[in-house]
Design a protein around this nucleic acid. Structure first.
Lengths: 268, 268
DNA sequence: CCAAAAGTGTTAGCATTACACCCATGC
DNA sequence: GCATGGGTGTAATGCTAACACTTTTGG
């Protein structure tokens, strides 16, 4: 963005930044928790797993959580998030981004903290978690793969109480999803390589919880140079078959050198 | 965003998610590093501090870094970032947001790692850092306050090699700044409460590195209902005095219920 | 032939762009 | 009076929003 001229700085030597020696830095660990979304053509779904859990009363139960893991000394966060999601999703393409860190010292306490310490064989007083956002192309094969690995794709509308602070993370991720959709053409991360305009429209309608006029939507989409007809149509459908289109990422990247507009703020 | 009906899930009990027991989780610590920006009317500046540093050759030297600190067991990340910036900025309003975590296990090594271990009296093998983005209203009083505390406001164009991986963090923050400016009216975090339209325009021109037509800019700004005339003018200037305006955050928040538009992507 | 979903065009309104000159003040 | 920067208007263009009917296929 800017040049870096070779200028040297001569600072007064009177003050040096100091750490605060009364603080302690023990006993923390970092985890990743991944909110993986998929779209089944009708609804958004989120990937959850079961966790065995002992209630304060002593009875064993199981609740649901987002997939996650402590990170090891040797790995960085994206690797950890990848490791965690790969276990349930296999080798498919995953769109993966870091969201925010949940760092409240009390976010994991009591029973929950005991569960982590037992599970990992550690004795932590605190766990920070880095929330990741992910999208995958969901299809029948993936659903059954995930099921074999112990995960479930749960409709967003059917998610209830999750373990730890995972409801909070999920809400953050849903927000992130909407923002992302407003900014970049990420919809294609959810759809099969060949998709119909109607599929795309349904996805936008669900993500933004609105109805979209199909004429205006088609006009808009067909005007985008990076969405190309695949030259194929639906088959064996009891109505006029729809054309398939593909998203051309190269064209998108090439022509998307951002131009400055006076758009910057929400208008009147 | 969505309803949460009371549905219970009955999952197959065959698979339970498992951690990876071969991993270790010791010896990590988390720091925050804050990129604090200010605008002096002419250029963007970033807040840097000096660090005493021993070169491999053994000679003592000092380089520059972003203000930062390890986090203690008792605090969350925003508190740590606040603590760090307050030391240099005092009690002023700070716009503070978490950016991404820099988690490469090798990001701090050798001399740099030794410096941290010595400085904090710890023996870590690894430090992750959470990068924070901040904006403050910069003025002469703050500049001299910061100087007394050992910090400097360095023009972005004059920043050279920083300690650790802080150049990388700074680049991330500059990117973040541009994105933020495109999304929300954050410009006012940089400007005095009463500002002229020309000041605002200069700020946008510098942030986006473009020239803006002043007629179109004024038209746009004056059409925004949340920018109000302050009823005062510049004084003692050798030209037609400019009017002052203020940003009304309440009006902005009230009328800014987001409407869905088919704007979502970069256009043709 | 009927049901079901795909596909199509026009108009009005609004926001953005490009562009050149006059105005008020201090010195 | 002159230098300096503040302040103003209009026309062309392009994108968005509102709106209803025809087409193609399988059954």
């Amino acid at each position: 963005m800017r040049q870096v001229p070779d200028i040297s700085f001569i600072f007064a030597k009177t003050h040096i930044w100091m750490g605060n020696p009364s603080l302690t830095y023990d006993n923390q660990a970092i985890s990743v928790d991944c909110t993986v979304f998929g779209f089944d053509g009708e609804a958004l779904r989120v990937l959850l797993i079961r966790r065995r859990h002992t209630l304060p009363s002593g009875t064993e139960t199981a609740d649901l959580k987002l997939p996650g893991s402590l990170i090891s000394d040797a790995e960085d966060l994206p690797s950890a998030a990848n490791r965690v999601t790969r276990e349930l999703v296999g080798s498919r393409t995953i769109y993966l981004k870091q969201m925010e860190v949940f760092s409240n010292p009390q976010r994991v306490q009591g029973q929950e903290l005991m569960w982590i310490n037992t599970y990992y064989g550690v004795s932590l007083s605190r766990v920070l978690t880095v929330a990741f956002f992910a999208m995958v192309k969901l299809d029948e094969k993936l659903i059954s793969y995930t099921r074999r690995k112990g995960g479930r794709w749960v409709e967003l509308g059917e998610v209830r109480q999750l373990a730890l602070d995972h409801n909070k993370i999920l809400v953050t991720a849903m927000d992130y999803l909407m923002h992302l959709f407003q900014q970049e053409p990420v919809a294609f991360e959810f759809l099969p390589r060949k998709f119909t305009i109607k599929q795309l429209q349904r996805l936008y309608e669900i993500v933004f919880d609105v109805e979209i006029d199909n004429r205006n939507f088609r006009k808009k989409i067909l005007s985008l140079k990076y969405i190309l007809p695949a030259g194929e149509c639906e088959e064996r459908v009891a109505h006029k078959p729809a054309q398939y289109y593909v998203f051309d990422r190269k064209i998108y990247k090439r022509q998307n050198k951002k131009i400055f507009r006076l758009n910057f703020v929400g208008g009147k």
